[in-house]
Amino acid sequence: MRGRTRIVVAAVFLLVASSLWAKTGVALVHGKGGADLANASTALAYWTSPMIAAVTKNYAVPSLVCHYDGTQYMWVAGDQVASQIAAFVTAQGITDLVIDTHSFGGVVVRWIFSNPNRNSSYQKVVSVTRWVNTIAAPQKGSEAADLAGTLSGSWLTGWLVSLVGENTDSTKNCRTDDMAYYNQYWLYGTTGRPALPKTFYSISGWGLFNDWAHAEDYGLAALSAVAGLPGEDDGMVAEYSAEAVGTLWFRTEANHHHNRRNDFKPVGTYLSYDF
């Protein structure tokens, strides 16, 4: 009898101790892009080392940089991301996870949290997550993706289609028409739809030319000027879209390319305040 009591006491102690000693981790989920984003090294390059170091407090916080094929629909990407995160939290014993996303990565993660019963990986990710920070997520779509779709892909014939390279499922997923449909039928978190099971914090961008020596900024400024992005935007995603889901955490002047880095504004440092 005494031995049995000891076992019960030990079990209770372990239970209490495990809750007191929650192990925190962070997962970073990139946006859309090429198929090579399925490679870990390409995904690392997407975020850049300074950004990852900043978010993780110089790698003190266990981290996972998710890597998925950046050309796919959110549910294909979601399966890959959920599987990686579930494996990460299991292997590391993570019990308190923060997920940081950039651009389409925010839509991919919202897909996971809108479908928590899709499989055991999804359930694991949802249950272990403290909250999600989405940087410039096109939650209501991106007029820039509309423009890409209008100019490329379906409307061209022959050799032009392959040259433009923007006729991908992920670009289509990000169009405003498509996101209106997904928000109505498949995703949670927008006005009038069920709430997400965990809190989403949004970060929206409003700057364009962050760095005159940084040539990508010209491309973003061009997009912003012609794509018809309503209100303020970061060159790719308008703020109304980035803020359509969750609670606005902060706005940043960093544009769409710089807000996944820690250069023009210390966005990674801000994210590290979670730890």
């Binding site: 950046g70 670009t171 010209y218 061009a222 997009l223």
Partner: peptide, 14 residues
């Protein structure tokens, strides 16, 4: 930078 990471060709002229 790495090609294919951005959402449209960053070779736009404005």
């Amino acid at each position: 930078e790495l090609p294919g990471l951005v959402d449209l060709p960053p070779t736009a002229s404005l």
